[in-house]
Nucleic acid binder design. Structure first.
Lengths: 202, 202
DNA sequence: GAGTTAATCGGAGAGTTCTCCGGTTACGAG
DNA sequence: CTCGTAACCGGAGAACTCTCCGATTAACTC
């Protein structure tokens, strides 16, 4: 029988042996500490394994690859953010008009990336095809729904991609570090963009 | 005396020794062939060096890193594209109203990425900080100028980033392969986006 | 041509990511 | 408590990117 990859799907807890769970926890703790000390770019899975007292094979079995480990470190914040825009108070959560919710969401996403900038940068660098799976999918559906409410008839799915695309760690970093923009400049720009998209009459 | 990196700046031909020029040419030819045969992702610089009959150090001396080699392979098309939107016939080149030029530019960029999709994908995967240098800078200035003409007072620089962000190989691939969108769908979406951005009255 | 010098060459090697698989261990069944 | 098995462990090793530096060679001067 083939070994299943055992990458746990979020929200669907998989039975995991006690030693495996212990190792997962230990690896996450060690990785978080090492990233604090030396930055996410410098994180070597070899080193994580050594510091956690496990073999490198164990790290890969638990997290699939380097990006998988980084995602695991991001996961908790992610859940909180998703809860905020799906069930939280307006204007981020339900209750406000779609255009306002879209703007609030984009601003929230900027703040969220800022919180764990180093991790997001490292994750985007890794690339892999998984960039548009998981959280991205959730964001996209959320935005597309709001856009469809504000502008029936438009290609809401594409516009969701278009609003999400400029909110990524690489670009944010570049805009701030090399272009001298502030977070407020960026948020203002996103407000303008979102307003233009939702209020456009073709 | 420190060795200067000798990464040639485009358009500023640097005196290069005959053997060095020969090797650069040979490396580019071999790399192009290997990419045709096995795909850009599978391109190993070790293999390129062996097939070109040079040491691996030579490849790195010439092109700096993996991305540098990929950029060199992209370079010729790049020059043609830049010439087209800076000096070519309208609506891509000068002569058409800004809004139309913006749309034409975005459509042209989609086509351009399609032409060398594999290379762009590999280049984006590599990441590095150089993603916003070189061609990107040119695109950004071009778009920002046009946007400033269409909508004086707006943050044209940011909006240029925002229009460029959704036009990248990773997203285009994703939209087509996993979402079933056609190139036409994407271009229509970009037209809508550009129109919204340039005709918005705050 | 011969000499000088600085750019170039090439391969050994360090540091990574990820794979593979023989040996080990947790845990439910009896 | 014992046993059987599926899941897990860990480290050797393959493949890769990139660095370093002694040996080599192109190109300019005389």
């Amino acid at each position: 029988m083939p070994v299943r990859p055992s990458l746990p799907v979020a929200g669907q807890p998989q039975p995991e042996r006690a030693d495996a769970a212990r190792n997962r926890q230990k690896i996450i703790e060690v990785a978080a500490r090492l990233i604090d000390e030396k930055g996410a770019e410098q994180l070597s899975l070899d080193e994580v394994a050594r510091a956690a007292g496990v073999g490198v094979g164990t790290v890969y079995r638990r997290f699939g690859d380097r990006c998988g480990l980084l995602r695991a470190l991001i996961d908790e914040h992610e859940r909180r953010f998703q809860a905020a825009f799906m069930n939280g108070p307006p204007p981020l959560g339900p209750g406000a008009p779609p255009a306002q919710r879209i703007t609030a969401f984009l601003h929230g996403l900027v703040d969220r990336i800022d919180q764990q900038q180093a991790l997001f940068l490292a994750l985007e660098k890794g690339g892999s095809g998984a960039r548009y799976g998981g959280p991205y999918r959730v964001y996209r559906v959320h935005l597309a729904t709001l856009i469809a409410q504000a502008r029936p008839g438009a290609d809401a799915g594409f516009l969701a991609d278009a609003l999400l695309a400029p909110v990524n760690a690489n670009l944010l970093c570049h805009q701030r570090d090399e272009r001298g923009m502030t977070t407020e400049d960026i948020k203002n720009g996103l407000t303008d963009l979102a307003t233009a998209v939702t209020s456009h009459h073709p």
